[in-house]
Design a protein around this nucleic acid. Structure first.
Length: 271
DNA sequence: CAAAGGTCCTGCTCGC
DNA sequence: TGCGAGCAGGACCTTT
């Protein structure tokens, strides 16, 4: 599920329900996620007050006075606020219980997600320190992309999905951004001009900003039992549409593998 | 059997 | 040749 817009939507959805609340306990049903959930979390966090919920890349930070919990949703994770009487289902691995009778529940069938302790400075955690700029920050620009990309020999799609280059561009939005910029996903990075990079950076910003906006439209439904992520409803131009006509030129959308991942593009519009 | 929205780790390759 | 950065592939899991 989670690309950046989904994580941002989750962050905005849970923040008002968590901020200011007291943690009354933690339930770990399955500790084996991407990394083991630390077993001292319950004793550490019980009784603490949540002061903030924030996001960096696709990681969420749930902050208290003694430090922050770091969450990652991996490939199939989702978060939900539910009443503490709600029975846990098969893949509900982790609950953060609140003293008001609610809880934050992590569901993650594929278990590529993570629940980690970030301490007082989660931004210094080994998973966080080497991350590139946020795509919607000014630090991410065509200039930044060009400086890194012009001497790389790998495919451009892999470059923009590299979290050391820019965070938050997943497989869906990599294809979408490259379509918008008119760049073939398999292009070698060092074959692109400065102009290409400027266009691509703008396309990434535009695609992600729009997706976050659309994710936001379902925020009010966040607590509902089957609240679906907003981006499912959004318009994707090429992702998942091989064989369909290109919305720009009408030619058939192609699919190929780049770096083991499915990639979608229009042969006619992208070079 | 293949594929699914993530990303870290390993071991090889390439260019200085 | 030697070195380090960069690159491709494998790994982790379950469900459809």
């Amino acid at each position: 599920m989670p690309e950046l817009p989904e994580v941002e939507t989750s962050c905005r959805g849970i923040a008002p329900h968590l901020t200011g609340e007291v943690i009354s306990g933690i339930t770990i049903r399955q500790a084996k996620l991407r990394w083991p959930i630390p077993d001292d979390l319950p004793s550490l966090l019980t009784g603490q007050t949540i002061t903030a919920v924030t996001r960096r890349a696709k990681y969420l930070f749930i902050t208290t006075d003694i430090g922050s919990l770091i969450l990652h949703l991996g490939m199939s994770g989702s978060l939900r606020m539910v009443d503490s009487s709600t029975p846990a289902e098969k893949h509900d691995h982790f609950d953060l219980l609140l003293s008001n009778g609610k809880l934050l529940r992590l569901r993650d069938p594929r278990r590529f997600g993570a629940v980690l302790w970030g301490g007082l400075h989660p931004e210094n955690h080994v998973l966080i320190t080497h991350l590139g700029p946020e795509p919607l920050d000014e630090a991410f620009s065509g200039k930044h992309l060009y400086q890194i990309g012009h001497k790389r020999r790998g495919a451009i799609k892999n470059l923009i999905m590299d979290a050391k280059v820019v965070v938050g561009v997943g497989n869906i939005y990599a294809s979408e951004s490259l379509f918008l910029a008119g760049i073939h996903p398999g292009c070698t990075a060092n074959s692109l001009s400065k102009n290409h990079y400027y266009r691509l950076a703008e396309a990434i910003k535009q695609v992600l900003a729009k997706a976050i906006e659309q994710g936001g439209t379902t925020l009010k439904d966040f607590q509902q039992s089957d609240g679906k992520p907003g981006y499912f409803a959004q318009q994707l131009n090429v992702y998942g549409r091989s064989g369909e006509p290109c919305p720009t030129c009408g030619n058939t959308i192609s699919q190929c593998k780049i770096g083991q991942r499915s990639s979608f593009f229009c042969h006619h519009c992208q070079h």
